[in-house]
């Protein structure tokens, strides 16, 4: 296994590979599917999610000794909500981006992947490991939405435009526009999952595919 390394480094890589939030745990799907029409929005969304997962993981890990068990979920939510508000107000200074990301910024609060990490990891681990875990989970999310958005934007519109500069232009007129429309999100994600199952199946011939190890 690739992630046989020790301690904190493992927390980082496991979020990206073995317990990837989107592909393996299947949490936080909503924003991933909605945002991934353009690479540019994905960069901002990924940055926002990484910021919130890292900060909330660190804070929750710091105060984990003082949190009464019965009301821990509301406390986690308030911590996460504060960081989301910071992101919300920061992005509001860029109206063009804010309009495109729209309701997804406030919805990071209820993104199950962040609460799941707070509850499942940060509330029981040290600060440094929680930091690495948050970073890994955030990066895992970002990598997947970037892959999806590159695929969708490139084949849906024929070119990739990043910050007003065209990076790649296929110069083809008739592209399958459906990829940047609503069904395209589901199809792209389904193909990604199928590829993953195929890959896992090929690596261990007698295994049964997507095992979803915790």
């Amino acid at each position: 296994m690739r992630d046989r390394g020790k301690g904190a480094g493992r927390e980082l890589t496991k979020g990206i590979v073995r317990t990837n939030p989107l592909l393996v745990l299947m949490v936080g799907l909503c924003s991933a599917l909605a945002i991934s029409t353009r690479v540019e929005s994905c960069i901002f969304m990924g940055a926002a999610v990484i910021f919130v997962t890292v900060c909330s993981n660190v804070i929750i890990s710091l105060i984990r000794g003082f949190i009464p068990d019965q009301i821990r979920i509301p406390i986690f939510i308030v911590v996460i909500a504060s960081f989301v508000t910071i992101v919300d107000l920061t992005l509001k200074t860029q109206p063009a981006i804010y309009e495109r990301l729209g309701v997804w910024i406030p919805l990071i609060v209820v993104n199950c992947l962040i609460l799941a990490r707070a509850e499942g990891f940060a509330s029981g681990s040290g600060v440094y490991r929680s930091f690495m875990d948050g970073l890994g989970i955030g990066l895992g999310y970002t990598v997947v939405i970037l892959i999806m958005s590159v695929f969708r934007e490139l084949f849906g519109t024929g070119k990739i435009v990043l910050f007003n500069t065209t990076l790649i232009d296929l110069k083809v007129d008739a592209m399958p526009k459906i990829l940047i429309m609503f069904p395209g999100a589901f199809i792209t994600f389904a193909l990604l999952l199928a590829c993953l199952q195929w890959y896992q199946d090929r690596r261990k011939p007698k295994g049964k595919g997507a095992a979803g190890n915790e």
Partner: peptide, 16 residues
């Protein structure tokens, strides 16, 4: 390779 989750997403695409 489409069994389980992937086919559910394909079906959702058709619904969409």
């Amino acid at each position: 390779f489409f069994r389980g989750a992937p086919i559910a997403f394909i079906a959702a695409a058709l619904y969409s």
